[in-house]
Design a protein around this nucleic acid. Structure first.
Length: 428
RNA sequence: GGAGAAAUGGCCGAGUGGUCGAAGGCACACCCCUGCUAAGGGUGCAUACGGGCAAAACCUGUAUCGAGGGUUCGAAUCCCUCUUUCUCCGCCA
């Protein structure tokens, strides 16, 4: 959520910055709503002040044993007026809130301006894609003999669900363990385990609601149709970041660094026909997530650091990748700056997203009311960052494709061997 | 699932219809006193959103005692619904 003061002071400047990310801000509508709000609020507060003063007088009169009926007669009709005024105010305020909640974050000045992913800027490439002297298979064909099973996944749950068994399942688990251990032991993150089902208000905090409900899975308690709205998390960013909701953090406790391995559930409405083969795009996938709650002064340093943490995983796995800066038009709703890590997939002969690291500035903090106390004792909004470190399913894809051998076997990356019982290959 | 109790400021805790945004204590900040040891005194110390105002200081209004509704001129206090916590019983991995 943007600072409403920013909008009150200079709607046009905000609109100009949002235009860069392809969002059209209706400044005139805002100005109109704001005028209405001010009028309604002043009116309501005046009536409340009148009522409060009269009630005090009544109290005093009664204590002295005087007759309070003249005062009561004077404000006889106040109640109805006040009720109407309060309703009018609430109505406008609700409109403003909903409008505010649907505006995306402002891009940071350092973000390249552009329309879509073709305008993203490559920052660096690390590692050299291996050259194969045999026909390269994609992960579906590489993994099938060892337990990568889409057919059974579809039987159980439909398209975009996968069953892993045997060596592939273990490789998948090993990747998650390896990532989690690296972030906790080498990067200073606290390991977390959090709910996978969250209340709807939590999703307002991180920005999935009110605009992106169609990407989420909504769940219901058995037999409880009137129960609270709850959703499966689409990323553990949601649960990790919201742990600091409604709290005031001591300055010397910043930054808070949290990591978790969790499943992610995405309905991906609107992505039909994209990446239908294989496990690139699934309704359920695992991810190791990093979240930092940062002091505003250091959040952009923290972003660079976090990208480095994600890169460490790829480096240790010896997977070639590149880092790109997303342009204004390609960034997510809550982000003020985002780096994507893209891993080399030989079968697709291209780099594909495997991590996304964003600084959200105070955008989520304002929605969550997450603050710290500054030196002068004032409460200030924290900055929030999140990054994949990494998407486990896609990392599995990358390992299968990059480590495949001519005989159909798969070499196990060196760092994963301790997690795989010391073996150095699958099959062969 | 059944029965009962509870939820107040950073923390503890008083407050059952009328100047209560809330006593008192702790913690914290500053000042004074004291030349010495976890001593004494004073002051300050919730948040959000408005208006004066373009902004700071300042003045001022409104809301907030788990959440939402209701009764009332007036609600922390009475009523209803919900949430959470605790105790006991049952069930369960």
């Amino acid at each position: 959520m943007l600072d409403i003061q920013l909008l009150r002071n200079d709607v046009d400047a905000v609109a100009a910055r949002l235009a860069g990310r392809g969002y059209t801000l209706d400044g005139a509508a805002f100005t109109r709503l704001e005028a209405e709000r001010k009028q309604a609020q002043v009116r309501m507060q005046e009536l409340q002040a009148t009522r409060n003063a009269a009630s005090k007088q009544i109290g005093e009169a009664k204590r002295k044993g005087e007759d309070a009926s003249p005062i009561m007669a004077r404000i006889a009709t106040l109640g109805d007026e006040l009720k109407a005024a309060e309703q009018a105010y609430e109505e406008v305020q609700k409109q403003i809130d909903l409008w505010l909640l649907s505006i995306p974050n402002l891009p940071h000045e350092s973000v390249p301006v552009g329309r879509d992913e073709t305008d993203n800027v490559e920052v660096r490439r690390v590692g050299v894609p291996r050259s194969f002297d045999f026909p390269v298979k994609d992960h579906v064909d590489v993994g099938a003999p060892y337990g990568l099973d889409f057919e059974t996944g579809a039987k159980l749950s439909g398209a975009r669900f996968t069953v892993l068994r045997g060596d592939i399942a273990r490789l998948h688990r090993s990747l998650a363990q390896f990532m989690l251990n690296t972030h906790t032991e080498e990067h200073g993150y606290t390991e977390m385990y959090t709910p996978y089902i969250v209340n709807d208000n939590i999703l307002y905090g991180t920005g999935q609601l009110p605009k992106f409900a169609e990407d989420m899975f909504k769940v219901q308690k058995g037999g409880d149709e009137a129960g609270p709205d709850q959703y499966l998390i689409s990323t553990s960013e949601i649960s990790l970041t919201n742990t600091v909701r409604d709290s005031i953090i001591k300055t010397d406790e910043l930054p808070l660094k949290m990591t978790a391995h969790s499943p992610c559930f995405r309905s991906e409405a609107g992505s039909y026909g994209r990446d239908t083969r294989g496990m690139i795009r699934q309704h359920q996938f695992d991810k190791v997530e990093m979240v930092q709650i940062s002091h505003p002064d250091t959040s952009f340093d923290a972003l660079e650091e976090m990208v480095g943490h994600a890169e460490t995983i790829l480096k240790k796995l010896e997977l070639p990748y590149r880092v790109i800066t997303l342009c204004t038009g390609d960034m997510g709703f809550s982000a003020t700056k985002t780096y994507d890590l893209e891993v080399w997939l030989p079968a697709q002969n291209t780099y594909r997203e495997i991590s996304s690291c964003s600084n959200c500035g105070d955008f989520q903090a304002r929605r969550m009311m997450a603050r710290y106390k500054d030196e002068s004792g004032k409460n200030q909004l924290v900055h929030t960052l999140n990054g994949s470190g990494l998407a486990v399913g896609r990392t599995l894809v990358a390992v299968l494709e990059n480590y495949q051998n001519a005989d159909g076997s798969i070499t196990i990356p060196t760092v994963l061997r301790p997690y795989m019982g010391g073996r150095d290959r699958i099959g062969g």
